[in-house]
């Protein structure tokens, strides 16, 4: 894995809870990030325009403009990666925010290590996959120039749909892809709600790509949200 230089990246925190803001500021500054914090949605949007952050950490439960709305308005003019902070009770909002364009989510309470990993992944993803035709994830190699997939040196035969799925995952490596996004991208907008297609293909893919399909290492399920490739 290539470690991209992410030190010094500018992060905007939008959260109404002082405790959380303080914690994040201390922890992220400690890790070398430049941090700005605001307590409300509208203020967050204004600040994003001025501060030009490299990444936004956004709480879903804001008192004024809701988190989903903030993502939507932000996406009107910016591609800045957004990580959602949510609690367990906000599953649907979380998915909506992801569908609206947020890049990832962390559920409160979260471990700092996990958050940092997500920040790094999002920043890396924002930097773009580059022009590399071959992407490697441990023993999983996706060669997009030749439409080849190989695991631990062995070629794997995939159906066209399976390959499209793997390619979509690989291009968005580390990012959560919602069910809706995957269905729309692979099968088309009419299939947005046919989750069982996805379940069946993920099952098939895992049997082909994972050494133990019950303990997948590459295609990770995000319960109630979607999948991500590691």
């Amino acid at each position: 894995m290539i470690l991209l230089e992410t030190k010094g990246a500018r992060i905007l925190i939008v959260d109404d809870e002082t405790q959380i803001r303080r914690l994040l500021k201390v922890a992220l500054a400690g890790h070398g990030y430049e941090v700005e914090e605001v307590a409300a949605g509208q203020e967050g949007l204004n600040r994003a325009a001025l501060f030009r952050p490299d990444l936004v950490i956004l709480d879903l439960g804001l008192p004024d403009v809701g988190g989903i709305e903030v993502v939507r308005r932000l996406r009107e003019w910016s591609k800045v990666p957004v990580i959602i902070l949510s609690v367990k009770e906000q599953e649907e909002d979380k998915v909506s925010a992801l569908d609206a364009g947020a890049d990832d989510y962390v559920t409160k309470p979260f471990g700092m290590g996990e958050l940092l990993a997500r920040i790094r992944a999002a920043l890396r993803h924002a930097a773009g996959p580059g022009e590399e035709p071959v992407l490697e994830f441990d023993d999983l190699v996706v060669d997009m120039a030749h439409r080849h997939v190989n695991v631990g040196g062995t070629d794997v035969r995939l159906t066209p749909t399976e390959y499209d799925l793997v390619k979509t995952f690989a291009l968005n490596a580390g990012k959560v892809l919602t069910h809706k996004y995957l269905l729309r991208t692979i099968w088309g907008p009419a299939y947005e709600n046919d989750t069982h297609y996805l379940r069946v293909y993920i099952g098939q893919l895992r049997r082909k790509l994972e050494s133990d399909p019950s303990r997948p290492r590459h295609i990770i399920t995000e319960p109630g949200v979607g999948y991500r490739l590691l």
Binding site: E91, T195, H196, R199, V200, I202, G203, R206, P213, S214, R215, P216, I220, T221, P223, G224
Partner: peptide, 17 residues
């Protein structure tokens, strides 16, 4: 209940994880 089609193997995997 937010019922949808699920693969039990997938659920087992997530639970183990």
């Amino acid at each position: 209940l937010n019922k949808d089609w699920c693969d039990i193997q997938d659920i087992v995997g997530v639970a183990i994880g």
